[in-house]
Simulated scan of single mutants.
Amino acid sequence: MDDGGGGEREDSGLSQRLRSWAPAIAPVTILSALLFYFGYVSSRALYEYFGIDVDTIGLGTQDYIMRSPQPLLVPVLLLTLLGAGGLLLHAAIHRRITNVGLPPRRIRRLIGAAKVTGAVVLAAAIVLLFAYGLVREWAAYSLVTPLLVITGGGLATYAWRLSDLIGEAPWDGPATRTPAHADPGAMLRRTGRFMIYVLIVTAVFWVTATVAQWSGRGQARDTAVYLGRLPRVILDTKERLYLRSLVVEESRLPDAEGQTFRYRYRRLRLLVIGQDRMFLVPEVWSAGNSTLIIPIDGSVRIQFQFQNDAP
């Protein structure tokens, strides 16, 4: 008679595997969420240029993730280079303090200057945040403000880190540390550092989202300049569309028995295709043009033309 021990062992093994996978699952989930967000921001800016709300296209999560590498490429490269440079700079400063032994008065003077500079830069960022209603039309606002937060917060936190490093230096003698519960200011300092860390992470997120938005708008303008790169479409309809564009060519199809399509439209390009519809634009950009939404069903007939490039 089975006492259930086998089932318990199987459950235990599954639990152990899940626990071993947990450290990898969490970062992958966070990364996927970030890729989705930046792909969405970039796509929204791209299709908004053509008068389309991205939510009407019907793109899925995978579609947005696949569109995220381009807007994220420059920010990721910059963050990697800045991070590597920061680590090298910190290693050089740490080595100079511990091995060379700079005069403590000079070091404290430099740390004090870094703290003051960081506080001033953070104050400038706070002023810009509260003055949003006055300077929101400034094109660089959404980039300059978070960069000030990152710079000021980074200087302040690094100055604190150097202060801790000096506390361990040989010239200060044996370090006498007060327990956290006996030092009323310890909790306040930790809380202040934590809040600055949150500000820095939020500002990095803000900068990257701004770059993603600008990337989408830049891609939209590049697409508008070179609309001829998009797939060429010939559209047949049962009714006249009365398009505003002067670029699109309209012709009436000859009457024939069983023929239900009456009008043909040329010089259209496929901008994007959603779940059940296509978005077509004229092949030459004009401010008076509009995007044509075509359902993918039997109400229209669509042909895709070959490129005019002989093999």
Rank of each mutant, 00 (worst) to 15 (best):
V272D: 00
P71A: 00
G58D: 05
A131S: 12
L73Q: 05
L280S: 00
G218P: 11
A91L: 12
D255V: 05
P311F: 04
R109E: 04
L88P: 01
R161Q: 13
L235H: 12
V116I: 11
E239Y: 07
A125N: 03
P27G: 05
S286F: 11
Q70L: 12
D236V: 02
K238H: 09
M1I: 11
I200K: 14
V247K: 09
D11Y: 14
V127L: 14
M278D: 03
D297T: 00
P231W: 07
R190T: 12
R240S: 10
L280M: 03
Q305V: 07
R252F: 02
G118D: 03
S245H: 11
T260K: 04
P146I: 00
L35Y: 08
G51L: 06
V120Q: 09
L18F: 13
T178I: 09
V121D: 03
A169E: 07
P174C: 05
A169F: 07
Y64M: 01
P254R: 07
L241C: 04
R229A: 11
L235V: 08
I296D: 03
W285I: 03
F261W: 10
D236S: 11
L79E: 02
L82C: 04
L31G: 14
Q213W: 15
Y263L: 01
A113Y: 14
R67K: 07
D222A: 14
I293D: 05
L165F: 13
T237Y: 08
T117I: 01
I97S: 09
G101V: 04
P184C: 04
T56G: 06
V76G: 01
L270I: 03
V247A: 02
V127D: 06
Q62Y: 11
Q219N: 15
I273W: 08
V144T: 06
A33L: 13
V281N: 02
V272N: 00
S43H: 04
F306P: 06
P23W: 14
D164C: 05
G58T: 07
A24R: 14
L143F: 14
V207S: 12
D276A: 12
D11P: 01
V116P: 06
L165S: 08
W171T: 10
I65S: 02
W206C: 04
G13E: 15
L241M: 12
Y263C: 02
L14V: 10
D164V: 10
A212Q: 13
Y37K: 13
R17P: 05
L188M: 12
L87W: 11
F261G: 00
L243D: 01
